[in-house]
Computed example of a mutant assay.
Amino acid sequence: MAFGSVALIIECLTENPSRTAKFTRNVLAKHQAHVTPVAFLFQRKGAVRVAIQEGDDFDARLERLVDTALNAEAEDFEQDEPDEGSMEVEFICQPNALAKLTSAVTAPGVCEELVSNEYIYSPTDKVEPPSDEEAKETLARLLDELEEQTDTLRVWTNLDS
């Protein structure tokens, strides 16, 4: 837990858990954060991100993609702003529906490209980033240092970004 009620889940993969735990605790202490249970602040979800190309029938293809995903147990979706002729759409689902959702949205004629499919930690309540510049910098340095560690796979936060 970092200052300002910023919860962190640090996913690691290591052959030496003692070394990784010690390093992580040292980094947290150095940046005024501490180890405490925060799993209750997150939900495990599935996320599928796909890309669709812009074109003449873009709106119809986007509607077909969203309908297909919702029928395959997607709970929510978010689309990015179009960039360089394509748009990415991310669908969120329960963990047990990830394979079904991935298969449905990657079927021929539904989307052009699967960008990613993974299990994520979704915050139940998001917190605003610190307004103080020094706190923002400290938090950014903390996240950077944690992510630089070779054993760290990913750092999840409950920040509203």
Rank of each mutant, 00 (worst) to 15 (best):
A2C: 02
G4I: 05
G4C: 05
S5F: 06
A7E: 00
E11P: 01
C12P: 03
L13I: 15
T14C: 00
E15H: 08
E15I: 05
N16C: 00
N16G: 01
S18F: 12
R19S: 13
A21S: 03
K22A: 14
T24Y: 06
R25T: 15
R25I: 12
L28N: 01
L28F: 04
A29F: 08
K30P: 01
K30I: 00
H31M: 01
H31K: 03
H34L: 13
H34A: 12
P37A: 12
A39S: 15
Q43L: 10
R44W: 04
K45F: 00
K45L: 02
G46V: 01
R49Q: 11
R49Y: 01
R49I: 08
V50M: 08
V50D: 09
V50H: 06
A51S: 08
I52Y: 06
I52N: 05
E54M: 13
D57H: 10
D57P: 01
A60C: 14
A60D: 15
L62H: 13
E63P: 10
R64Y: 03
R64Q: 07
V66Y: 07
V66E: 13
V66M: 11
D67E: 14
T68R: 14
T68P: 08
T68Y: 07
A69K: 10
A69S: 12
A69H: 09
L70D: 03
L70P: 02
L70Y: 10
N71C: 07
A72S: 10
E75M: 06
D76L: 10
D80V: 00
D80K: 00
E81A: 11
E81M: 10
E84K: 07
G85F: 07
S86M: 02
M87I: 14
E88D: 13
E88T: 12
E88W: 10
E88H: 09
V89R: 11
V89E: 07
I92G: 06
C93Q: 07
C93D: 05
A97F: 03
A97W: 01
A97P: 01
L98D: 04
L98W: 03
A99Q: 07
L101E: 03
L101H: 00
T102F: 13
A104R: 11
A104I: 09
V105H: 04
V105R: 06
A107N: 05
A107P: 06
G109T: 05
V110A: 15
C111V: 06
E112C: 02
E113S: 10
N117E: 08
Y119F: 13
Y119R: 08
Y119A: 08
I120Y: 00
Y121R: 07
Y121W: 15
T124M: 14
D125A: 13
V127Y: 00
S131H: 10
E134V: 15
A135N: 11
A135D: 13
K136R: 14
E137N: 07
L139K: 09
L142C: 05
L142N: 04
D144E: 13
D144Q: 14
E145P: 05
E147Y: 11
E148Y: 06
E148F: 10
T152D: 06
T152M: 12
R154D: 06
R154S: 03
W156N: 02
T157L: 03
L159G: 02
